[in-house]
């Protein structure tokens, strides 16, 4: 097999395998955190910890929107329903 073909095949395969590893690693970390660390405790009565939106999709959309608009500088620390 010539060098160009080797680079083509092994290159694509390596990228695919590494991204499979990314998926597996992500899933493993999520499983581990869910099982052994769990959800962070909410501090009752903390200022600004009003009614939180619990819908994960909505939170994800807000986080993505803030990240995009602020070019990654802004972070969502709390979401309150007004």
């Amino acid at each position: 097999m010539g060098l160009p073909l080797q680079v083509f095949l092994f290159g694509l395969l390596t990228v695919f395998i590494v991204l499979l590893v990314v998926v597996a690693t992500g899933n493993a970390i999520i499983w581990f955190v869910n099982r052994y660390i769990g959800a962070p405790a909410q501090e009752p009565g903390k200022p600004g910890s009003g009614q939180l939106l619990s819908h994960s999709g909505r939170i994800a959309a807000l986080t993505a929107a803030v990240s995009t608009v602020t070019r990654g500088r802004g972070r969502v620390t709390n979401i309150e329903k007004l």
């Binding site: 690693t25 992500g26 970390i29 999520i30 581990f32 955190v33 869910n34 660390i37 959800a39 994960s56």
Partner: peptide, 17 residues
């Protein structure tokens, strides 16, 4: 499954990966 603690996952992810 949902992610119960995104902060912890996000901290562990770059280290492990």
């Amino acid at each position: 499954r949902e992610i119960k603690n995104m902060t912890a996952v996000k901290i562990a992810f770059p280290i492990v990966l």
